[in-house]
Design a protein around this nucleic acid. Structure first.
Lengths: 334, 334
DNA sequence: TTGAAAGCGTTACCAT
DNA sequence: ATGGTAACGCTTTCAA
């Protein structure tokens, strides 16, 4: 592999000049620039990005930590991010945190040890304090789907209260009055917010919130399954169940069928996230759109702007959810 | 950030010695090793991986090119890969090729320009020749889901003929005799193989293969939709349709419902890949398992073994598909 | 077992 | 506009 040194020799110029044309920087005369590029072509020269990184103290790499690489949620997010970075010649180093505190910390450590210039973090288990402390350190980072007031300018989030509100309002508008709710784990802010939105909509319709109609799940499919089952067996009757995410809604669907209910006639089900497979379940699931792809892009823009001082479209920090009506909610029940 | 130099000064040893204990290499006396680690702790020393890479000519990074970062197929593959690499302190640089020749080439170029020590490629659009040429160059790479005989030792593939055979055999065993087939794009080897397996099973049951019952799709959902529709409207009757992947099967399901068919009674549908959402469609889709997660891990092991000379479990190059029976195939039709 | 010193391939500052 | 040269932080001979 040819080095900058050989290029400089062949072109009859100094190292510095070659470097200048590489970074098509500074003032280089057209004549020498041509000489140099010709030499590069002749030698098939490729800059060594590692040497560049060392000398410039900039690795051009940004770390991305997600909970899982699989699953319907992270794919679109990573897509958006990868795309905007590649156009900018930055590269993505990806690690998984598995929603587990130790592994999230390890992942962050790992990314930092890889000399990432910046980090995009989708973390769930690590504490606010940890992140606040981290923010005092070297590496700049932006958070997706997490709000910490001390770090509010670097939190890219969805308005979950509104999303929760929209979901329940839609169900109410279809005439449902007895509505069960399967929440996420309530120590998570997004789970709280979605529930809060639910209550808000209920209140707006003059309906009391009934603890008996609430089941606390964990955002995973299985908890939707058992959630619906326990609600159905132990609670008062309800004609609709709202799930705090699509995975649980899917679990609830399976559960409903096992209970012998025909969907959506005997039970309406509402999801949240608009994960891609919700179109494919049967009946197609009504849900709340979570523009995770756009939010990923925004996180990438944040990094571009804050870490690399690039011009980007104006940064936006909170995104708005939208109702997606499909066929899992029945009208005028009973 | 402390450097190796400061550590050496504090510990009262040379640079070389510090380097030795970092790579807990060579023979270093316990005494000095202790001194050095103590100094490191005191300074909070973290090795600079970029400097290490430059000096050692090893970036400890491996490039992964997939078609898409989202979608049900690549997630599990990336998961398997990330996991085995992180344990080995290697990191993954991910790029997307979008099943497009130019972008795949760009992606590979990009990864190479990032000084990856090795590459894992899931490419579809790039030619065999290109890859053969690439194999003569510096970077070692392994291919997933692609077979090139000249490169057979670095092709990690599924036995698709067998998979296609298994799928059709299962349908035949349930008593179906008129079976339609929606294939992938037939210029792709895997699509060909799956179809070949289909024909083989048919032949085994003494049934002729009927071109009229074949629709060539493109592995995307929409083609399953239109595929079923055109088959249904123009072809002779059939009681089952076998799709060359789950996405198309999902499209076919939607199509069937639009045609007013009740599933699975009036039409049995078979998928391929066992992508995770197949459990959630209704009726749950019978399909062929594609152990993509394991294959990803194997690719990672290949790299570990061939690039980093690490000991790994024995390498396996072709994987076997398995039948997954759910509820989308009806028994004894008509 | 340890140390000295020459790289690794760039960038960036200071001259000219 | 161009060149000289010291970093960048580590690894890796080669000697001792």
């Amino acid at each position: 592999m040819a080095t900058i040194y050989e290029v400089s020799k062949l072109a009859g110029v100094s190292l510095a000049t070659v470097s200048r044309v590489m970074n098509n920087n500074a003032n280089v005369s057209d004549a020498t620039r041509k000489k140099v590029t010709a030499a590069m072509d002749e030698l098939g020269y490729r800059p060594n990005s590692i040497a560049q990184s060392l000398a410039s103290n900039c690795s051009n790499s940004v770390g991305l930590l997600v909970s899982e690489l699989h699953g319907p949620f992270y794919g679109p997010m990573m897509s958006g991010i990868e795309n905007t970075f590649r156009n900018q010649k930055k590269h993505l180093i990806i690690a998984a945190g598995h929603s587990n505190e130790e592994r999230e910390k390890q992942g962050i450590e790992f990314l930092i040890s890889r000399n990432c210039d910046g980090l995009i973090l989708h973390v769930e288990a690590v504490s606010d304090d940890y992140l606040i402390k981290l923010s005092k350190s070297q590496v700049p980072f932006v958070l997706i789907n997490r709000f910490i007031s001390e770090l509010s300018d670097r939190c890219i989030i969805l308005n979950n209260i509104k999303g929760g509100y929209l979901a329940t309002k839609h169900v109410l508008e279809q005439g449902h009055k007895q509505i069960a709710y399967i929440s996420g784990p309530l120590w998570k802010k997004d789970a709280q917010d979605r529930l809060e939105g639910h209550k808000k909509a209920l209140a707006e319709y003059g309906l009391p919130f009934d603890e008996q109609l609430l089941y606390q799940g964990d955002f995973m499919e299985a908890s939707g399954f058992t959630g619906l089952k326990t609600l159905y067996q132990h609670a008062k009757p309800f004609s609709a169940v709202i799930c705090a995410n699509d995975e649980m809604a899917t679990g609830a669907m399976a559960s409903a069928r096992e209970l012998g209910l025909t969907l959506p006639d005997q039970l309406s089900i509402m999801g949240y996230d608009n994960v891609f497979f919700t179109r494919h379940v049967y009946p197609p699931l009504s849900t709340i759109n979570y523009p995770i792809n756009e939010m990923g892009k925004m996180a990438a823009d944040w990094v571009l702007s804050h870490v690399y001082q690039k011009q980007t479209a104006p940064l936006q920090t909170v995104f708005e959810p939208e109702l997606v009506v499909r066929q899992s909610i029945t009208t005028n029940p009973q």
